[in-house]
C-alpha cells in the first residue's frame, strides 16, 4: 500500500515536471521558433535541408536523404541494433540436440472449421497475396529515395511475407524457402553492404559514409548522383538485415527455438 502511494507521488511529480518543461517549447509548427527560422541571421538546419537537399543529392525525398546520407551513422547503427536484437533472441531461444526433443511443440490439430484438412481457404489466398506483397516490398525498398518508404519499411514487408508463408502452411515450408543458414548470412551481409559503402569512401580518402567521392567507382556524372545511388545501395543493405531478422525472430519465437513444427 505504502509503496503504491510513493509510486503515485513519484509518477505525478515526474509527469508534472515533464508538462512544465513542455510549456517552454515553441508552439507546434511555429515558423519563428529557432528550429525553423534559425538563430539571428544564421540559417537553421531544417532550412538547409529543405533548400539544399535536392541540389546536394538529387533525391526528392528529404527524409530518406537525411536518414541515409546526412545522418548515415545513425541509420547504420540502427541497423546494427536490429541485428543485435535478432542475434540476442537467437542466442537465448535457439536449442539443438536433446533439449530440442523435449521442447518441441506438437504439430497443430488436423481439423478445420469447414471440415477439410487442407486449410484450403487460407492457403489459396496466401498463394495469391504473397507474390504481390513481395513485389510491393521490393518497390518500397527500391523507390525509397523518391517516395515514402525505404529499407526498414520494405524489409519489414518482405519479412512479413515470409512469416505469412510460415503461417499459411507451416514453419518447415517457410524454412525450406528461407533456411536458418540463409537468414543468418543475409542479416550479416546487409550490415556488411552498409558498412562497405562507408569503408569504400575511406579507401578513396574521404570520411566514412561520405558518398560523394563514390562517383569514381560508380561512374556517375557528379557527386550528386553518386550520393543518390549510394543511398539506394545502403537501403538495400538495411532491407536485407531487417527481412532476415524479422523472420528469424518469428521462427525462433513460434517454435520455442527448435525451428520445427511451430505454430
Amino acid at each position: 500500500m505504502l509503496t503504491k502511494v510513493f509510486a503515485t507521488i513519484a509518477v505525478v511529480i515526474t509527469g508534472g515536471l515533464l508538462l512544465y518543461g513542455v510549456s517552454d517549447f515553441p508552439a507546434f509548427g511555429d515558423p519563428h521558433s529557432p528550429a525553423n527560422a534559425g538563430v539571428g541571421n544564421e540559417e537553421s538546419i531544417s532550412q538547409y535541408f529543405i533548400t539544399q537537399t535536392y541540389k546536394d543529392t538529387k533525391v526528392p525525398n528529404i527524409v530518406t536523404a537525411v536518414l541515409a546520407d546526412y545522418r548515415g551513422y545513425d541509420t547504420m547503427f540502427e541497423t546494427v541494433v536490429i541485428f543485435a536484437a535478432g542475434i540476442a533472441i537467437f542466442a537465448i531461444l535457439r536449442v539443438t540436440g536433446n533439449e530440442a526433443e523435449k521442447k518441441s511443440i506438437k504439430p497443430p490439430l488436423d481439423s478445420s472449421i469447414n471440415g477439410d484438412h487442407q486449410r484450403i481457404i487460407v492457403g489459396t489466398t496466401c498463394r495469391i497475396v504473397i507474390p504481390v506483397v513481395q513485389m510491393f516490398a521490393l518497390y518500397v525498398v527500391a523507390h525509397g529515395h523518391h517516395s515514402p518508404g525505404g529499407g526498414f519499411q520494405g524489409g519489414v514487408i518482405l519479412g512479413a511475407s515470409f512469416i505469412l508463408v510460415a503461417m499459411s502452411e507451416d514453419l518447415n515450408a517457410a524454412l525450406r524457402r528461407f533456411s536458418e543458414k540463409t537468414y543468418l548470412t543475409l542479416a550479416c551481409v546487409g550490415i556488411l553492404i552498409y558498412a562497405g559503402f562507408g569503408l569504400m569512401c575511406q579507401f578513396l580518402e574521404r570520411n566514412f559514409l561520405d558518398y560523394g567521392i563514390l562517383q569514381k567507382v560508380l561512374f556517375t556524372d557528379g557527386p550528386e548522383m553518386a550520393r543518390s545511388h549510394s543511398m539506394l545501395g545502403v537501403e538495400v543493405g538495411v532491407a536485407f538485415t531487417v527481412t532476415a531478422i524479422m523472420f528469424a525472430i518469428y521462427a525462433n519465437l513460434s517454435s520455442r527455438g527448435v525451428l520445427k513444427n511451430g505454430l
Binding site: 487460407v122 496466401c126 495469391i128 497475396v129
Partner: peptide, 20 residues
Amino acid sequence: AFILLTSPTSTHALMDAGWE
C-alpha cells in the same frame, strides 16, 4: 481488391483458430 481478398480470409483463419 486487397481488402476483398484478405479480410474474409483473416476472419476465416481467426474462426478456424478458435475452433481448433
